[in-house]
Nucleic acid binder design. Structure first.
Length: 635
RNA sequence: GCCACCAUAGCUCAGUAGGUAGAGCACCUCACUUGUAAUGAGGCUGUCGCGGGUUCGAUUCCUGCUGGUGGCUCCA
């Protein structure tokens, strides 16, 4: 007689063999309708699972994150079932739920087409209409191997062998799949779904393995949720930085120049200029000094730094300079190290913080290039900090705080933070790694930040903190990074003279706050949907006379704005004011000044704000004051 | 790099069952002199991504390449 404790603290005894679904039957109502699985003693189980011991139960709501995961997971099974019906020889790999929906990796004899997706959707609907229950079975390894070998499911067989423990399977009608579960009670629970795309994916994520076809889909209990999802994707596409970059004339990438090489147009370059200006000011305030280094260096430098050992596949091929091989820089660090070495450093000199907007070039495989987010030539807002062991904690803390502040000034408050720890291949001692990792961790905790640990994801030369920002379609892009380096100080043999008169090895931190200006600009465009805050807007004010009669007055206003350091543009075309407003609105100019006869007579300006509309008339001096305030506050 | 898809005017797109192409916006000119998201009329705009093949003839069919898109792998 298991005693089951409910979330409200109530404890009830049930007879042996009771299932969560029995309890739901008894409770009924909304809970029964909305629950798709149960968590018993922390473990998720099917509603048809057996409660055989005492424990705490909690029902999983269909619309909770876990509920949707189960929903999508079961949807993936239904999709696989449908594919199996259409392609009896299809073999299946993995089909998990993801952040937005689900996918299944399949091995089908021919390439799937969009028409196939339509067909698969139809068959899925049939399976759903049949409302077959998902039935769990637990098998021994041997039984499972026999079953899946019979089905010629080679990937499943491989997976069973890899697991090495008795697996569970789920049957649903004639379809059987290796799966941990839990699942929805039956296929009929899946109401509204859509298959979204087909892509290639390597078996087990290894590019040496064969490529499977990955079919992505999404499903929801309610039609409105599916509609909203599709609409959200459509809306997101409108603020894609590649679309806005073209529409707002910010940048372009040109085939004649080469893929992954960015042309910053005047408006984009202006925004970049403001970003850099802000960046420089903040760095000076934070105790950094600037350095500037060349774009190429002798091959030998890259040999010394280790880049030729671990980074060659990302470096552009060498060039010949007076019969000496040179390489274009993929990183700035070796240069900074060479500056360090030009003089003997005392412990009193540390910490040294050297920053550079350093433009680097990396060969990125063609398939990975993506607008401004992933390019082949980019400018890092790089800095290297050389410090003593006793300064490490403090430096890490400072960088974290500095970094978050920098992101905040561009409106990024919601970011994902990762701590990447020691990978399999590493240089340096375990003690050093542990100490450095501890320092990074301490820094994060002192700032009371939420972060995830990425075990083994550190660079071979040291642990790191990464901050990622999501683009408009929910794809994560790494921007900020703070890395400890045990490799290069060693290779370049940099030292400082300690209080004891001996030479010591300083600790080196690499850090980039925005990461690269290109990527950062990309996420920034999407973040603001192209409507940049006043301080960044390339054109801050559109001045528009209503008729030619007000042109002279409008011109004096435009000139006054320019004199006051406001970026003004005068639209004196002989067009209706509605036309000019539309134009300025489309260009997302923050402010419009409309100048008609009334304004001329009263010596006023009529203010209109982007997306907000008419703000009424004010004195020009007041308007300028207001703008200056807004610019200073960077809102 | 791998899998799939795509490439027509500056942009968004239509089109040709194979006979060298069109619309809207943008741009230019003229008229209108206008009050908070599109005034009207006229004009300009193309190696139909590049190369090869099939064909009397290719933007259209086949093929190679280049570039892009969505993923995978890899990374700021």
């Amino acid at each position: 007689m298991p005693a089951i404790k409910f979330p409200d603290g109530q404890v009830k005894k049930y007879k042996n063999g009771t299932k969560p679904s029995d309890i739901l039957e008894e409770i009924g109502g909304r809970l029964k309708k909305q629950s798709v699985a149960a968590r018993v003693n922390g473990r998720l189980i099917d509603l048809s699972g057996i409660l055989d011991q005492d424990g705490e139960i909690q029902f999983i709501d269909i619309n909770s994150p876990e509920g949707l995961d189960i929903y999508w997971h079961s949807s993936a099974h239904i999709m696989a079932h449908a594919i199996k019906k259409i392609f009896p020889n299809a073999k299946f790999a993995f089909g998990p739920p993801v952040e937005q929906g689900f996918y299944y990796d399949v091995d089908v004899e021919r390439s799937l087409t969009p028409e196939d997706l339509v067909k698969i959707e139809e068959v899925m609907q049939e399976i759903i209409t049949k409302d077959e229950p998902f039935v769990r079975e637990e098998l021994s390894v041997e039984e499972a191997l026999v079953l899946f070998k019979d089905l010629n499911e080679t990937y499943k067989v491989e997976q069973i062998e890899r697991l090495g423990e008795p697996p569970s399977i789920y049957r649903e009608g004639s379809f059987v799949d290796l799966c941990r579960g839990p699942h929805l009670p039956s296929t009929g629970y899946v109401k509204y779904f859509k298959l979204l795309s087909i892509a290639g994916a390597y078996w087990l994520g290894d590019e040496k393995n064969p490529m499977l076809q990955r079919v992505y889909g999404i499903s929801f209990p309610k039609k409105s949720q599916l509609d909203e999802y599709i609409q959200r994707i459509e809306e997101a596409k409108k603020r894609d930085h590649r679309k806005l970059g073209r529409e707002l004339d910010l940048y372009s990438i040109n085939d004649d120049i080469g893929p992954g090489l960015v042309l910053w147009h005047p408006k984009g370059a202006y925004i970049r200029h403001k970003i850099e200006e802000h960046w420089r000011n903040e760095h000076l305030k934070s105790g950094y000094e600037f350095v500037t280094t060349p774009h190429i260096a002798r091959k030998e430098l890259w040999n010394k730094s280790g880049h030729l050992d671990f980074f060659t596949e990302n470096m552009f091929s060498e060039m010949d300079v007076d019969e000496q091989p040179y390489l274009v820089k993929p990183m700035n660090c070796p240069f900074h190290l060479q500056i360090y070495k030009t003089s003997t450093k005392s412990y009193r000199d540390l910490p040294i913080r050297w920053a550079e907007l350093g433009t680097v070039y990396r060969y990125e495989r063609s398939g990975v290039l993506h607008g401004l987010m992933r390019v082949r030539g980019f400018t890092q807002d790089d800095a290297h900090i050389f410090c003593r062991q006793d300064q490490l904690d403090d430096e890490v803390s400072r960088v974290i705080g500095f970094c978050l502040n920098m992101l905040k000034s561009f409106g990024f408050e919601d970011v994902d933070i990762y701590l990447s720890t020691r990978p399999e291949n590493y240089v340096g001692t375990i003690e050093n790694w542990d100490r450095a990792t501890e320092a990074l961790k301490l820094g994060l905790e002192k700032a009371s930040l939420n972060y995830q640990v990425d075990p083994g994801e550190g660079v071979f030369y040291g642990p790191k903190i990464d901050i990622k920002i999501k683009d408009v379609l929910g794809r994560s892009w790494q921007c900020s990074t703070i890395q400890v380096d045990f490799n290069e100080p060693e290779r370049f043999d940099i030292t400082y003279v300690g209080q004891d008169g001996d030479k010591h090895r300083p600790i080196m931190l690499h850090r980039a706050l925005m990461g690269s200006l290109e990527r950062f600009f990309g996420v920034l465009i999407e973040h603001y949907a192209g409507a940049f805050p006043l301080w960044l807007a390339p054109v801050q004010v559109h001045v528009m006379p209503i008729t030619d009669k007000q042109r002279d007055f409008a011109l004096t206003i435009h000139q006054e704005l320019i004199r006051s350091d406001i970026r003004s543009y005068i639209d004196d075309r002989s067009e209706k004011v509605g036309f000019k407003i539309r134009d300025a609105e489309t260009k997302k100019t923050p402010y419009m000044l409309i100048i008609g006869q009334k304004e001329v007579e009263n010596n006023m300006v009529s203010v209109r704000k982007h997306r907000e509309g008419d703000k009424g008339s004010v004195q020009l001096t007041d308007f300028i004051e207001q703008l200056k305030k807004e610019i200073a506050e960077k809102v």
